[in-house]
Design a protein around this nucleic acid. Structure first.
Lengths: 339, 339
DNA sequence: TAGAGGTATTGTCTCGATTAGATAATTACC
DNA sequence: GGTAATTATCTAATCGAGACAATACCTCTA
């Protein structure tokens, strides 16, 4: 199979134990032997077998990552953040993607059987996931959920995600500051969604201003919806709002399209702001202003937290909830109007 | 740590060996004992330790996947294909992403140390990758490269990727059939690139027709280039071509943009075809016709091939080179003109 | 030159599970 | 009722590396 300590020991005319000591920094060995052993190891291309260390120390330097990769861009960036943190700690991710054919439970077992040290998940809508997590939690495997929060009754699952409230407020402030007093919100999804939080935080911030009005249109969630219906409703309103906030960049695309069809120019006739992490913001004409999430940072923090949990061992402190603040980015889709 | 056979053995008042036999299908055990053992195992939540099986059989049921995830959408879809094939064979991917800070060699060592059974890579441009692959190949680890081919002098690395020639020809045929006789190509990159193959195959197919003319503009590769310069050059040509083939969907976006600026309507004034796997084709107005790659299929075939190599063991047949045929998809960006 | 005090090296047990070979227990049959 | 045949279970070795206790080998000193 592969080169083992025994092979090296034979070549070097010493015992396996000696070789083992020579490789590690522990124990004393004569410089002469150490050099000889190391050079033979190098020559044979020896590589330690982490599986062995895994069964001995109960630490595999491996973590499981459960993500569906439905939102391609976001998930990749999230993963990149995870990966970077893990790699620099010499950990390695086993990436699994639950599908109808291969349910979560099976994937989690797959991870447990390989004795991962912890699990990172980006839960899908279905709350089913959460029940299955007990399989891991009951074995004292730390679990951190990313971007989407598990219900509050899973106290052992930490969370790292975007601070939707801060982001939505920043958007509101930016629009107010640009002089907008009549604004609308396009959103989608149900109450439990992040979208909903964004819409609400945005609206209440606008209302706090006293002098400004806001109204919100919810486009029922259909796969890949761009929210054209909602956009149409908004833009036909009299008097027409001067700015629209979309709780998702995707929805902003619908606004762009409908505006274009109605002959409205952006930003001259209508200002638009989005919320997301997608490259689409840059690809629209004009480039879409909005709240930018930081998936890399989310992933990195989640991985850091997981590693911390792994190292702190059994007695688990209280549940952590880390919010990553998104950033307001002003491009060309917002017009400043006289107050 | 976690529940072991020994724990079960104690509870069941039998030896570990008995438990082991009861778990597996090999060996005979009385139905009574088997049931007892299994129920205790279930009750304790026993899960086998694959690490142990790994060091014993030299098979970890794990493969390494090296991808940079630069092209978000393509890479995710590629990964999905890989994942599905691996999962249904009870294999699991360790996904690593070479970065400047964490060079390929280190990543490969990481995989070897964990004794993966094989490696899938999507090589980046830098040919450096290939040298490092020897670390794996010399240990008889099968390696399959995806989408981008390693040089021919790496005979032990199999390849699975898009059939650029077939795809480009399909595009040429479609444009010819729609009556176009004066067509242009926007491309980018250097001679070794897939883009180049596409441009060449397309052009020669057009020329074969005898009655049609084609010319090609190469936009030097800059990160994220959309090829506006090249598009401008093409569209200012007199007489203006009636159709443009972009060797990459991204470049087609540049054509759209420039055409729009010049007041040319698509497809009325100009037909456009692309080549890619991105969703952007659907998001453009009008939706972009073109050659569609099949990343899932590429990933799945690559994984299948890898598994086959893993199972066939040492004596490696001759290098495999599997081409996945892309599909011509006709949307709204091509006008049929009278011949 | 015996014994103290080092340093260098080795034997052996351990991790969790599989497996071959050895025993024990049961059944079959004359 | 005794022995062979069959079935059920156990003992012990194995995989690769680490940890610790146990020796072997020096050197120095009284």
């Amino acid at each position: 199979m592969s080169i083992t300590l025994k092979d090296i020991a034979e070549r070097a005319q010493v015992s396996q134990a000696t070789v083992s000591i020579a490789m590690g920094s522990t124990g004393r060995i004569s410089d002469k032997t150490r050099k000889r052993v190391l050079s033979i190891a190098d020559e044979l291309g020896y590589r330690p077998n982490l599986l062995v260390q895994g069964i001995q120390k109960g630490q595999t330097m491996t973590v499981g990552v459960l993500m569906a990769f439905n939102d391609h861009v976001f998930d990749v960036r999230l993963f990149n953040g995870i990966h970077e943190t893990l790699s620099s700690a010499n950990y390695v991710p086993i990436v699994l993607r639950p599908t109808p054919v291969l349910p979560v439970l099976q994937q989690i077992h797959s991870l447990i059987d390989r004795r991962v040290d912890g699990i990172l998940i980006r839960p899908a809508k279905e709350a089913i996931w959460e029940r299955h997590l007990n399989e891991a939690l009951d074995r004292n495997l730390p679990v951190v959920s990313m971007d989407i929060e598990t219900r509050a009754d899973t106290p052992r699952v930490d969370f790292v995600g975007t601070d939707n409230v801060v982001g939505a407020r920043a958007a509101a402030d930016a629009l107010l500051e640009a002089g907008h007093r009549r604004v609308a919100v396009v959103t989608t999804g149900v109450e439990t969604d992040a979208m909903h939080d964004r819409a609400e935080a945005f609206a209440s911030r606008i209302e706090e201003h006293g002098d400004a009005t806001v109204f919100c249109v919810n486009q029922p969630w259909v796969d890949n919806t761009k929210g054209e219906d909602a956009a149409l409703e908004i833009l036909n309103k009299k008097p027409r709002p001067t700015a629209v906030f979309a709780t998702m960049d995707h929805l902003a695309m619908g606004v762009y399209r409908v505006a274009h069809e109605l002959g409205l120019r952006i930003p001259e006739d209508l200002s638009v702001a989005g919320f997301g992490a997608n490259v689409i913001a840059d690809e629209l004409t004009p480039p879409l202003s909005g709240v930018r999430q930081k998936p890399e940072q989310t992933g990195a923090r989640a991985a850091e937290l997981l590693l911390q949990r792994i190292h702190e061992g059994d007695e688990h402190g209280k549940r952590q909830r880390i919010m990553i603040e998104p950033e307001w980015v002003n491009l060309k889709s917002i017009k400043t109007i006289g107050s």
